[in-house]
Measured scan of single mutants.
Amino acid sequence: GKMTGIVKWFNADKGFAFITPDDGSKDVFVHFSAIQNDGYKSLDEGQKVSFTIESGAKGPAAGNVTSL
């Protein structure tokens, strides 16, 4: 299901971020390909987002990341 959280930090050079979920679970890795914005895919620290949890090769990662 959809979860919500806050972007903890975003590394534009490497194209990934971490989200701190609102439910208090541990921070979730985000690859820029999961960001659903049109055009430039970036996130801002402190931004509120919704996302799903996908199981990636290196463990859980956020999918369908959308700005709220």
Score class of each variant (00 low, 15 high):
G24Y: 02
G56Y: 09
V28L: 14
S67Y: 02
K41H: 13
V30W: 15
Q47K: 05
P60G: 10
S33G: 07
E45H: 13
G46N: 04
F32W: 12
V65M: 05
A62P: 10
F51I: 03
V28K: 04
Q36T: 11
K58Q: 13
D44C: 15
K8P: 00
K2E: 07
P60Y: 01
K58Y: 11
V65H: 09
G63K: 14
K2M: 11
S25A: 04
F32G: 03
F10A: 15
F51G: 00
D22H: 03
Q47T: 10
V30G: 00
K58C: 15
Q47P: 02
G1I: 13
W9V: 03
K41M: 12
D22L: 06
K26A: 13
I35Q: 03
P21C: 03
A12Y: 08
K48D: 02
D27H: 04
N11F: 06
V30R: 01
L43S: 01
F18L: 12
K48V: 07
T20E: 05
S42H: 12
S42V: 12
N37S: 09
F51W: 10
G1S: 11
K48I: 08
A17D: 00
T52V: 12
K8Y: 02
G39K: 07
G46R: 03
G39D: 09
N64R: 04
G24S: 03
A17S: 01
V30L: 06
G5P: 00
I6N: 03
Q47M: 12
N37W: 12
D13I: 07
E54K: 06
I53M: 10
G56N: 08
F29Y: 10
F29N: 03
K26F: 07
N11R: 03
D27F: 02
D38Y: 08
K58D: 13
D23C: 05
K41Q: 11
N11P: 01
T4L: 05
G15A: 06
V28S: 01
N11W: 08
S55G: 12
K14S: 14
M3R: 10
A34L: 09
K8Q: 06
K14A: 12
A12F: 09
Y40H: 11
I53F: 08
V65D: 15
K2T: 14
G39S: 10
F32H: 07
S55E: 13
T20F: 02
E54Y: 08
P60C: 15
N11Q: 05
Q36E: 11
F18S: 06
A62F: 06
A61T: 13
I19N: 00
I35T: 03
Q47Y: 05
K58N: 13
F10L: 13
K58P: 12
E54G: 08
T20A: 09
G56L: 08
F51A: 01
I6Q: 04
G15R: 05
S25R: 04
A61F: 13
L68N: 15
A62K: 08
D38A: 13
I19Q: 00
N11S: 09
A12M: 10
N64C: 15
V7R: 00
A34K: 12
N37P: 08
P21G: 01
A61R: 12
F18R: 11
I19R: 00
L43V: 06
F51L: 02
S33I: 04
I19L: 03
V30K: 01
V7I: 15
G24K: 03
V28E: 02
S55V: 10
F10T: 14
S42M: 12
A17H: 00
A62L: 11
K14W: 11
D38R: 04
A12R: 11
D22F: 04
Q36R: 05
P21M: 05
T66K: 08
K8W: 02
G24H: 03
E45G: 06
D27R: 02
F16R: 01
T4E: 04
I6Y: 06
S25H: 04
H31S: 11
P60M: 07
P60S: 08
F16I: 14
N37Q: 11
F51S: 00
K48S: 07
P60A: 09
G24M: 03
T20S: 13
A62V: 11
D22W: 02
I53W: 10
K14M: 12
E54L: 09
V49W: 00
V65E: 15
G39M: 08
A34F: 11
K58M: 12
A62E: 11
D23F: 03
Q36Y: 09
K8I: 10
G63T: 14
T4V: 05
K48T: 07
D22N: 04
Q47C: 13
L68T: 15
K58F: 10
F32M: 12
K8R: 12
V28D: 00
L43F: 12
E45Q: 12
A34M: 14
L43Y: 05
G39F: 08
D23K: 02
D38K: 06
I6A: 03
Y40V: 10
E45Y: 12
S50R: 06
T66N: 15
D44Y: 15
E45W: 12
P21I: 06
V49R: 00
A34Q: 14
D23G: 04
N37K: 08
L68H: 15
S67D: 15
F16Y: 13
K14Q: 10
P21L: 07
A57R: 08
S50K: 07
E54P: 07
A57M: 09
W9K: 04
A57W: 06
F16W: 08
A12T: 11
K58T: 13
L43K: 01
D22V: 05
Y40L: 14
G46L: 03
G59I: 08
A17Q: 00
N11C: 15
F51K: 00
S55K: 13
I19Y: 00
F51M: 02
V28F: 06
G63Q: 09
T52Q: 09
G1V: 14
I35Y: 03
S55Q: 13
D27S: 07
T20G: 03
S33M: 04
F10D: 01
Q47G: 04
V49M: 01
I6C: 06
P21S: 02
I6R: 08
A61V: 14
P60W: 01
S42N: 13
I35A: 02
E45A: 12
I35C: 07
K2V: 12
A62W: 04
L68K: 15
I19K: 00
G15K: 06
A61Q: 15
F51Q: 00
N37D: 11
L43W: 10
D44L: 14
K41R: 10
Q47I: 08
W9E: 04
T4C: 13
S55T: 13
F10R: 06
D44P: 04
V65Q: 06
F29R: 06
A62R: 04
L68E: 15
V28N: 00
G1K: 13
T4H: 05
D13C: 15
K2Q: 12
Q47D: 09
D13Y: 06
G15Y: 04
N11I: 04
H31A: 12
I19M: 01
D22G: 03
G46Y: 02
L68F: 01
K48W: 13
T4Q: 07
G56V: 12
S33Q: 06
K41V: 11
S50D: 05
A17P: 00
K8G: 02
E54R: 05
K2F: 13
G24Q: 03
G24T: 02
S67K: 04
G59H: 07
Q47F: 06
W9P: 00
W9C: 15
V65C: 15
H31Q: 10
G63L: 05
S67F: 03
D13A: 09
